[in-house]
Amino acid sequence: MVADLRHDDFLQAEPAGPLESSQNQPSAVLTVEKLALSLAGKEILQQVDFSLSAIGVTSVIGPSGAGKSSLLRCLNGLESGWTGGVKIDGNDIRQWPGGWDQLRRHVGLIAQKPLVFNTSIRANVCFGLHGWRQRRRADGLVKASLQQAALWDEVADRLDAAATTLSVGQQQRLCIARAIAIKPKILLLDEPTASLDPLSKQLIEQSMLQLAQQIPLICVTHDLEQAQRLKGQVIFMCDGRVIEQAASDQFFRQPQQIETREFLRWSVCDCD
C-alpha cells in the first residue's frame, strides 16, 4: 500500500514490523503501525503506517473525509477506540507515564475548528499552564507564544479583552499560541491556516518552519502549495488509508501511485 520511497532521514520506507521499525530507526520519535479506527460501525482509518523523525514538517493531504483529522485525534488520544500501535520515543501511548493528560501535553493538537475559551486573550494563551501562579506570571510566555502565532501585533494592546471578540482567523492563531505555550514535543496542526489571509498564512508558515527545527510537526492541509512550501514529508491519505508518502519535492514531481497522480491533477480520489 505504501509507495516505495527514498530512504532518508525524515521517514522510513515500508515499516517492516513492530520491533524492527523502532530498532532500525532510532531517530523516529513517532511510529504508527497498523492503526485502524472504526466509529459508529464505519471504518475511518485502515492500516495506517508511518513514522516521524525528530524534526521537520510532515504534511498530510487528501480529500475531505479521508480521515486526516481522525488520524490526528488518535495520535493524542482524543479517539480511544483504535487498534494498532502508536509509539512515541519508544513508549506505547496507551501506557504513557501519567496517562492521556500527560500525553496531550507532550503531543499538542490544534483542532480544525478554532475554539477559544470564554475568557480574556491572555487567559486563553495561559490556559494550559498548571497552577494559577504560573498562569499569572506568564507575560513573557504569552508574548512569545503570540508572536510565534503571528498574532502579537494585533492583540498586544488588548490582552485582557474577551477572546471571543476576535475574528475567526485571529481565534485560529490564538489557538496556535495556546498550544505552543505548553511547549509540546510534537505538534499536530489540523488545517492551521484554513481561514487566514495570505499574509498571516505566510507568517504562520514561517513559525511552523522555525518550530520544525526543534520538534516534529504534522500539518494537515488542503493547500497543496502550502505542502510544497513546508518541504519535509508529504503523506497522501484517501478513504482512511495512506496511499503514498514521500519527501515533498519527490512527491509532487514524481508521484508513484496512480491515485496520487489523479488527485494532484484533478483533485479527485477514487481509491476503493
Binding site: L78, W100, D101, R104, R105, G108, L109, A111, F127, G128
Partner: peptide, 16 residues
C-alpha cells in the same frame, strides 16, 4: 464537546 476537547488538548485533567 468542543470546549471539553479544547481543554483536553491542552492536557488539562478532569478535575482541573
Amino acid at each position: 464537546q468542543s470546549q471539553r476537547e479544547a481543554a483536553k488538548n491542552l492536557g488539562i485533567g478532569w478535575d482541573a
